[in-house]
Each structure stands twice: as C-alpha cells, then as structure tokens.
Amino acid sequence: MKTRTRWDAVCEVSDLIPDSGIAVWTEDGPVALFYLPDRLPALFAISHTDPFSGSNVLARGITGDLNGEPVVASPLYKQHFSLRSGECLEDPSVQVPVYRVLLDGDRVRLEISVARSEVAA
C-alpha cells in the first residue's frame, strides 16, 4: 500500500535563520528545518529528535559541511547527521527521518505522511 502524503505549510521564509535551524511542529512531531543559503538546495528538514538522547534539540545544532555533505552536529553528544539522508556519520546504523521541503512563494512546506484515519475518511 502506497503511503499518502500532503504538503503542510510550516513557516514563512522570514522565519528562517541563515546557516541555522528552527524547530517546527507537524503531525509527525517536531521537525528541524535548516536554511543554508549558500547551498543548492538551500532548505533541509530532518526530525528534531536526537536519537541518542531522545531530546528535541537537533534544530539547535551547529550546521556545517563534512567532505561535501551538509550536516548538523547534535548539541548534546556532537554526532553529525546528514541533512540529505538523516544518517549519523559516526554510526551509520542510526538515522533520523528526513522530510522533503518545498518553497511555495513566501511559505515553506514539508511533505508529511497522511494519517491512516484521514485516508479512510
């Protein structure tokens, strides 16, 4: 069965901070949205939850580049997560969910899975 999705508006472009992240709330839970204006694409979204601590902190991490890979370093234990794949570079067996991002005029939208109850309705 194919998963159904929708594009939810989560913030405005003016809410974004260059080379940093913000946390937004979705039906999937908290998401860390990153704006890296010197890259293409410039917008990335991963889960805000650090899988090593269970804390919602990834949007507060430091962004960077490791061998051409855009990353965020968790502010707690400093693991690096790829902003493209969600994979932890120090432990490839650990990964955070990644969300597709769309710029719609001044709105930033994330592709979110539709709950089964909504599909049945």
Rank of each mutant, 00 (worst) to 15 (best):
P37L: 02
E87Y: 00
R60L: 14
L83I: 07
R109M: 09
I46K: 01
S55I: 06
H48R: 10
L40I: 12
D19A: 08
G29H: 08
L89D: 09
W25T: 02
A115K: 10
T5G: 06
K78P: 08
V94H: 05
P92W: 00
S14T: 12
P70C: 02
H48N: 15
A59I: 00
G105D: 04
L43W: 13
I17Y: 07
D19R: 15
V10G: 08
K78M: 11
L76P: 01
R100E: 14
I22A: 05
I112P: 00
E87S: 01
R107N: 13
I62K: 15
E118I: 06
T63Q: 14
D91W: 02
C88P: 01
S74Q: 04
H80Y: 14
L43F: 15
P75S: 02
G21M: 06
P51F: 07
R60F: 14
V96F: 12
R4M: 13
V31C: 03
R39S: 03
A120C: 09
P70Y: 11
S74F: 05
W7I: 05
R100C: 05
V119E: 11
E69M: 12
L102H: 15
N56G: 05
T63W: 13
P75L: 00
V71G: 08
R116A: 13
G105R: 04
L40D: 10
R39H: 04
S53T: 15
P18S: 00
V94M: 11
D28Q: 14
S85K: 10
Y35N: 10
W7P: 01
P51V: 09
D38Y: 03
R100V: 00
K2C: 06
D8M: 08
T63I: 11
V108K: 06
I46D: 07
F34R: 04
I17F: 08
P37V: 10
V101M: 04
S82G: 07
L103Y: 01
L16M: 10
S53H: 14
R109P: 03
L102G: 03
S74A: 12
P37Y: 09
Y77H: 09
V57H: 04
Y99A: 08
V10R: 06
P37N: 06
C11N: 07
T63S: 10
L36Q: 01
P18M: 10
S93H: 14
F34C: 01
V10D: 07
R39N: 02
V71H: 06
W25D: 00
D8I: 06
R109E: 09
P41G: 03
R109H: 10
A120P: 00
T3Q: 13
A59F: 10
D8E: 13
A59T: 03
G68V: 08
C11R: 05
G21R: 03
Q95V: 12
E90C: 00
V31P: 01
R60D: 14
I112V: 03
V72N: 01
S117C: 00
S53R: 13
P70V: 07
D91T: 05
P18N: 04
N67T: 07
G61L: 02
L36I: 11
E111K: 06
T3Y: 02
Q95Y: 04
A32C: 05
T5Y: 12
K78N: 08
L110D: 10
D50V: 11
P41H: 12
P70I: 04
S117W: 11
A9K: 13
